[in-house]
Nucleic acid binder design. Sequence first.
RNA 1: GCGGGUAUGGUAUAGAGGUUAUUACACUCGGUUGUGGUCCGGGGAAGCAGGGUUCGAUUCCCUGUACUCGCCCCA
Length: 421
Amino acid sequence: MFNLIRGTKDILPQDQKYWDYFKDNAFKLADIYGFERIDTPTFEMTDLFLRGIGIGTDIVNKETYTFLDRGENNITLRPEGTASVCRAYIQNGMHNDAQPKKLYYFTSIFRYERPQSGRLREHHQFGIETIGNNDPELDGEIINFAWTLLKKIGLKQINLKINTIGNKNDRNHYIKSLSKYYLESKWSSSECKDCEQRIKINPLRILDCKNNDCQNFIASAPAMVDYASKSTLEHFEKVKSYLDLSEIPYTIDSKLVRGLDYYTNTVFEITSDQNKSQNALVGGGRYDGLIEQLGGSSTPGSGFGMGVERVINEIISSKIEIPSKNREKILFTSINKKSFEQTIKFKLLARNNNIKSELSTINRSLKSTMRYANNKDFSHIVIVGDNDEKNLNYISIKNLSTGKQSNVNEKKLSHFLNKIQ
RNA sequence: GCGGGUAUGGUAUAGAGGUUAUUACACUCGGUUGUGGUCCGGGGAAGCAGGGUUCGAUUCCCUGUACUCGCCCCA
């Protein structure tokens, strides 16, 4: 017996409708907003993610699936979507296209984590990126997109949090005084081991600490806004006014920091009220330094990643009705061996007409066949009887929802198959 | 990486130191010659792995594993 690898999931036939529903909505909206699809490989050179996401981050430090392939190449399964898209942007010279380049993707993401509710080792993200323009309106637009999509899908209880973490300069100033604050305050004798690490590697993350002791210090820590340059503040104001114009409610969360190093200026997160933990459905923001970091010329960008499994969990737990695409579906059966070959021909004819159809196995009773038809939601059953007299009405067509049945000949059957198509 | 819970047919469950291991759903066959959804009957199908205690363990204990939930972090 083989079992699933820890942290992975089968998507079974009965769940496919949720995935279809999500994709239908997401892809259609992306098209409306002017985004084009891009697919990048499942794995890339490890360095791409090291440079992109940042060496000090948890994702790169302890969550990647990294290995040497048979050619000794150091390879990593994609732990997020943006770095690959940016690589493709640079490599394919997309800066020569009209800017901003607006791309979307739908893909598996791999992170070696302890699985729990809403967290897998292979999950799927739908994401969009706008590359090549640093207009704050574009930040507004991607947030607007994420919000609109979730609303369109039918989620009611979602919250948007936004923040600005400034440009590189702002942040360096801020981090300096933040570190100073912590090291000089009584906090330095605190017990939080995570934060002891954070202050060395990525001081911003301290703001994110859930530890109660730390929270007290966070409350009176210096705020990013005070270190933000004029242009940072202006940028943020414009994002906010875009959201106001779109009538999207948001809260400003000055403690919102993201786990990937490449963000600049705007960062945001959309969470759900339903689940207490793992409630982040969408995370994203602006990444103006990333393309340059990856070896391209200085190019701004902005985007988000949306956790598909988490959104689907929300769809299920908030009992959103999925529109069904029920089509006519015919089950063919024959009552004896003699008419069986005839039945095969009819079934093939139906399929040529693009009608969903199946042939019931001959070695079960008509009763069982009827039960099968009922279980599998067939709309019609066609029973082929004795075909000795070709011109007689030896074929029965039964409508399983009304129970009505009529006897027809071959001509009328093919007429029927044309009609219901 | 740390902590809690759980482990019985496909699914969901019951139970007791010694039973033929309960029940429901699902599946499958049938309930007179060729007709379903209700009803009735038959059938297949199970105690995670290893060790210990015991005359005897699926049941008690330990270890492992898996699942699950929480922390960290993230989508």
